[in-house]
Design a protein around this nucleic acid. Structure first.
Length: 760
DNA sequence: CTAGGGTTAG
């Protein structure tokens, strides 16, 4: 009797234990159920039983709880291949590639050997980490270990080799396959397409047909996506067409890829057709399709259509929002982009790196520099990690307001995150450092780059050009060619502008001629503008004017502006009038043109003409320009400097200056004429008269307190390296409590000055 | 249990 009771109790206990583990067999178990099962198995003393442990591990793996899984795995006295397989496959599936490899090494340490069921995941991890060496080792192991590699392993090998840019190896794997299948063939074909090898991609597709392998939906989609990613947009569209004519019904994947290509082709007609087709197929709720539709319309300049497509979607998704922000930004609708961003942020949408990066890019591309910096700070505060794309979006904002400290911080950040060698990051860093007056730091970035593309070389040439270091610019230009990189029109623009700054007429001319002669690069507007400036500044105004007349296309405001500036330097009234009159037609609302002409008149003592220009400005509706009154001051100051101080009109001028000063005070511009005049006298007279507009700008910048002008002045100061004036400039801000309302901006100015101070 | 295809930021 007692024995029966005992037996019953034992049985009862046992069934309870089994019952407590019931979740193990339910693949849909929640995480807490999995943990419960684990706890129960520990209590029951069953946790180290191989089959129980394997079950729990698989539950953890499905919930991506790799830390918990590891603890359990390592607690097993003798983990088996199934436990490892479960975890390795799961961690690879969820792209936890480093973890995958770690587990794999652990597995080998337990003297467990990999088989066909585990190799694909490990090889996929190699692909994800671009670990070609390890991938090849695994391939070698597979071939020598006596395993008959199956098509799963082979297709993962093809994929891995393509990811690692080893296309010949990928091809070899495919060629040696006993039974080539559709998965491997498609992987290879789309790999070639992704790398831009159109012929090989088509060839593999053809071979598949010969081998009797019917391409499926994934094969077609791989081709479309591949061609889109390698920039063969037209090819992507034509594959989409042949897919259709082959009677294949496309899906959301095909449509989103082809729409991306259509957007880059800016072919709105095809775009509308695909849009209609997608609607007919009922793909309106496919997030990627809607995103690429929004993007496509944005690239085609149809901002309204973009909004319509977006609004039609019932459930807004982050990706779609991102596409909308980019689309609005592309069409110059900065405020709407910001509004969208804020709206969905306020609604609690989980914004990701792309959202933040798009918004930062939008701000820095449209002159909202401090906003870009602020967004960068905020994104980190809310825990979104910037990536290697965020940095090059942010850096132009740092460069534009000389926020060297922020730029340096972004540089350090890139180091920490391991993308300081990225070509995009480096080019932007070179640009930022050059802009902040740190040409040496720019050069250091450039020197330590492991790989360079055209943009990097151009950034460095541009940096030297900006600093007037023509010898160095030419040196880089030559290095670039000996490294096998062909220059483009941007390289020549920088070279020509450097020559123009240094007055190297002959060198500049020879580059201009060899550009079209030797390099077969057609001269663009900016090249002509540089040449006009080069000739004009050197006093060859007639030659410059002939060049303008001989241009193969209609000169734009930049070209005429270069001529007018040269005329101002040379005090050439006649040609100056010609250029100015063209400019008044082309850009009647640009006050700079009027200022330049009146400067020429002032330097020649033609005061009636100066007044006429002033009237023209009034007629052009430029009266309300905040800097307007200062033009008067500017001209008189110029006159003071140009003429001798016993000028008969001197008393009148001073009187007028004082009167203007009063007017400005009334208007709230806080001018200080005495300060200005003193400052001007301290400057080297000939520098100002020889057209060093930068220094002049400094002086006039002190007068004009509008933030816009102040920004320009700061930029010029940095480029001149005139620390002395910079500090004076900034202290005058502080002294006169200018811009105190805009404290952010103010601090960035200070930052700019610090960078000047450190350098000079 | 394991392999091939998607959009949005430079």
């Amino acid at each position: 009797m007692t024995r029966n009771v005992e037996a019953l109790q034992l049985f009862d206990n046992f069934s309870q234990k089994i019952a407590s583990l019931r979740h193990l067999n339910s693949p849909a178990a929640t995480l807490s159920e999995a943990k419960q099962a684990h706890a129960n198995s520990l209590k029951a003393g069953l946790s180290t039983q191989t089959h129980v442990a394997a079950k729990i591990l698989s539950l953890y793996a499905n919930h991506q709880c790799f830390a918990e899984a590891d603890l359990l795995l390592y607690s097993l006295p003798q983990p088996d291949i199934f436990s490892f397989t479960t975890l390795i496959n799961a961690s690879s599936k969820y792209e936890n590639f480093r973890h995958t490899l770690k587990l794999f090494v652990k597995m080998l340490a337990h003297r467990l050997f990999p088989d066909n069921r585990i190799l694909p995941s490990v090889i996929k991890a190699c692909a994800g980490l671009s670990a070609l060496k390890l991938g090849r080792q695994l391939h070698g192991f597979g071939l020598t270990s006596g395993l008959a590699l199956d098509s799963f392993v082979e297709s993962s090998l093809v994929h891995m080799y393509i990811k690692c840019n080893a296309l010949t190896y990928a091809r070899k794997v495919f060629n040696k396959m006993a039974e080539p299948d559709v998965v491997c063939g498609s992987a290879l074909a789309s790999g070639y397409a992704k790398k831009g090898d159109v012929n090989s991609a088509n060839m593999v597709f053809g071979e598949m047909e010969k081998l009797g392998i019917e391409p499926n939906l994934v094969s077609w989609n791989g081709m479309i996506a591949g061609f889109n990613q390698s920039g063969h947009f037209f090819k992507a569209v034509s594959v989409f067409r042949s897919m259709h004519s082959d009677g294949f019904r496309c899906d959301g994947v095909s449509v989103s890829s082809v729409l991306a290509a259509v957007g880059d082709l800016e072919d709105i007609i095809i775009g509308i057709q695909v849009h209609g087709y997608a609607s007919k197929l009922g793909l309106r709720s496919d997030k990627c399709v809607v995103s690429s539709l929004v993007d496509m319309y944005g690239k085609c300049g149809c901002a309204l259509e973009t909004l319509r497509v977006f609004e039609e979607m019932d459930q807004k998704d982050v990706g779609t929002c991102n596409a909308l922000i980019a689309s609005l930004s592309r069409n110059g609708m900065v405020d709407d982009a910001l509004k969208t961003f804020k709206k969905y942020r306020g609604q609690g949408m989980e914004l990701n790196v792309v959202s933040w990066t798009s918004m930062i890019a939008c701000c820095s591309q449209h002159g909202k520099d401090t906003e870009a910096l602020e967004l960068f700070r905020e994104m980190q505060m809310v825990g979104v990690k910037p990536n290697s794309i965020t940095i090059p979006c942010l850096l132009p904002a740092c460069a534009s307001i000389a926020a060297l400290a922020h730029g340096k911080a972004a540089h350090c950040f890139s180091f920490k995150r391991g993308f300081a060698d990225d070509v995009f990051v480096c080019s932007a860093l070179i640009d930022m450092y050059s802009n902040c007056g740190r040409i040496q730091a720019a050069k250091q970035c450039f020197d330590r780059m492991p790989r360079r593309n055209l943009v990097c070389w151009n950034a460095m040439i541009g940096g030297y050009a900006m600093h007037g270091m023509v010898k160095e610019a030419i040196n880089i230009f030559q290095l670039m060619q000996s490294s096998g990189q062909k220059p483009d029109f941007v390289s020549f623009t920088s070279l020509l502008s450097a020559c123009s700054q240094r007055g190297l007429v002959e060198v500049g001319k020879s580059y201009f001629n060899s550009m079209s002669g030797d390099y077969k690069i057609e001269a663009r507007m900016e090249h002509y503008a540089c040449m006009v400036s080069l000739l004009g500044r050197a006093g060859k105004l007639q030659e410059a004017y002939s060049l303008v007349n001989e241009m193969p296309f209609e000169p734009d405001a930049c070209v005429w502006g270069a001529l007018l500036s040269s005329c101002r330097v040379q005090h050439n009234m006649e040609l100056g009038e010609v250029a100015a009159n063209r400019l008044f037609e082309l850009e009647p609302k640009n006050p700079g043109n009027y200022v330049l002409l009146s400067n020429i008149y002032a330097a020649r003592g033609k005061w009636t003409e100066v007044d006429k220009v002033r009237d023209m400005m009034k007629n052009a509706g430029l009266r309300k320009n905040p800097g307007y009154s200062w033009i008067e001051v500017k001209n008189k100051v110029h006159m003071l400097l140009a003429g001798d101080k016993s000028h008969p009109q001197m008393m009148q001028i001073l009187e007028k200056l004082n009167k203007l000063s009063m007017e400005m005070k009334k208007a709230g511009y806080l001018p200080d004429t005495d300060f200005v005049l003193q400052d001007v006298e301290e400057q080297e007279k000939e520098h100002i008269l020889c057209g060093h507009s930068e220094k002049l700008a400094v002086v006039f910048g002190i007068l004009n307190t509008s933030p816009g002008t102040a920004l320009t002045v700061m930029k010029n100061l940095r480029i001149c390296g005139d620390c002395h004036t910079a500090i004076k400039f900034i202290s005058s801000f502080e002294k006169r409590e200018i811009l105190v309302r805009d404290t952010n901006r103010f601090h960035h100015f200070k930052d700019g000055v610090c960078s000047c101070g450190e350098l000079w």
